[in-house]
Write a protein that binds this DNA or RNA. Structure first.
Lengths: 258, 258
DNA sequence: TGTACATCAGTGAACGCGCGTTCACTGATGTAC
DNA sequence: TGTACATCAGTGAACGCGCGTTCACTGATGTAC
């Protein structure tokens, strides 16, 4: 009985190992081939006949899905563990840690980052199973902001209808302000949508704070994407980490994380 | 003599037309196949034998390069013409026009946008000839900021060493400010790099203003990229244009464009 | 204006590859009695 | 513990496609005298 189970476990373990090896090889090929993943090339590198891979993944797209999920999970875990190491009350520190965790993972895994944050793969529709893993980074940021709101650190901008109205801070401040204090208020459809989103993912977060959080989220990934996709070539060359850190801090200030 | 020239022109014109048609077909195929452009598929749709395409483009990569240049030029032209329609003194209006021009083009040409702003094409190295067309949008933004500086509209944040130091504006303002006024100053390597960039592309623009301009530039394309690559799914659905407009205004305020 | 020659566009066959997926099969490993 | 049967991993051949690029060629169009 016990020996039977052990034997079973050995077979299962070998299976798991081979499954991992297939994914590892496929990921390595992402770097040279992009999302044009080839089952046959994977099999070749495995030293197996191409049809053997079908014992492990029912189709090429399923292998691609597995890779995507793994990448989202790795990125999410990298961000989470970096962020978890920081004192809960230090919201700015948590934001910086999460941000650098994301960027560091992306720099270490550029092809994988391109797979999940790059151009949609033609003909490939990501299934529902990718949604959860994909949400880990955004959940982290949402939690951070919710914590800030709960702690009273993030005050909702109260004056003006939307978040695009305000008075100008003096020169010398790092203000993302409307200099003339005359920007039109947030459009009604946007305000309604933000309220809907807030109700769904972070009920305690006011609309204006949520909008700022989304801005910061986009900026974070925008910088990483530009850096990885070559937009900084002949522009920002020697200070990319500092530049990213600067952007994180600007956004933290905008959101009110400190 | 004249008839000879006319005949010559006819041949040349036919050649130009076919060249354009090849590019048009190739672009249409981008939508379904992504950057995995197939010369044979293009030839098939043209009703020609595949080798005939080599009369027009020496290789698949040259065709891809031609597409990339066309797309950059189209996007640049779209941004430029939208921006050119606005009164020169209206910096905010020019910024908004350029931004919406970019987004509108991207929405109308999602596959083309993915080609130029998406994941790098594996195995393809963009030649020097793409650099000029690629720079049109950024040149436009740079010119806008330089105009603002020249007009005295954009004051360089003067206090503090870098651009991440400042005092907090009161609640209700659209400030991207450091709430505690205690963010560390801009890193030395970043400051030096910004000075180098400014000297190269916009000598009159102070380092801090340039940094803000780059932030705005990244945010603009970050939002468009997220929208086009599906990141807004189940999040921002009904107010994407308003959302983008809001982002543009937040960034304009940050940079000081008005 | 007419003729000889040169240029050019497009053909069709071929080279040497690649791909995903199916299917009947062998042989090893695991299971039940 | 031993034997019969079931499960599973991996093979090898095949189906029916795809691709970029080269090359000798035909026939039409353009050019020079």
């Amino acid at each position: 009985m016990l020996s039977d189970m052990t034997a079973k476990n050995i077979r299962a373990r070998v299976r798991d190992e081979l499954t991992s090896e297939i994914k590892a090889i496929a990921r390595r090929q992402l770097a040279t081939e992009g999302a044009n993943l080839s089952l046959r090339a994977v099999a070749r590198e495995l030293g197996m006949v191409s049809s053997a891979v079908y014992r492990y993944f029912p189709s090429r797209d399923d292998l691609l899905t597995a890779l995507i999920i793994d990448c989202y999970d790795e990125l999410g875990a990298a961000a989470e563990s970096a962020e978890a190491a920081v004192d809960r009350a230090d919201l700015l520190g948590r934001w910086l840690a999460a941000g650098h965790g994301i960027r560091d993972w992306a720099l270490a895994n550029p092809a994988e980052y391109a797979l999940i944050y790059g151009s949609p793969v033609p003909g490939y529709k990501a299934p529902e199973t990718t949604v959860g893993p994909a949400a880990r980074t955004t959940n982290l940021i949402t939690a951070l902001i919710a914590d800030g709101v709960a702690a009273g650190t993030l005050a909702a901008p109260s004056a003006g209808a939307g978040s695009t109205t305000g008075s100008r801070p003096g020169p010398g401040s790092e203000a993302l302000a409307d200099p003339a204090g005359a920007v039109s208020p947030m459009a009604a459809d946007l305000a309604a949508e933000l309220d809907r989103i807030a109700a769904l993912i972070a009920p305690a977060v006011p609309r204006e704070v949520l909008a700022r959080g989304i801005t910061a989220w986009i900026q974070l990934f925008g910088v990483v994407t530009f850096e990885l996709f070559g937009r900084f070539q002949n522009l920002i060359e020697d200070s990319r980490r500092s530049f990213f850190d600067h952007q994180l801090r600007v956004m933290a200030a905008y959101v009110g994380l400190r």
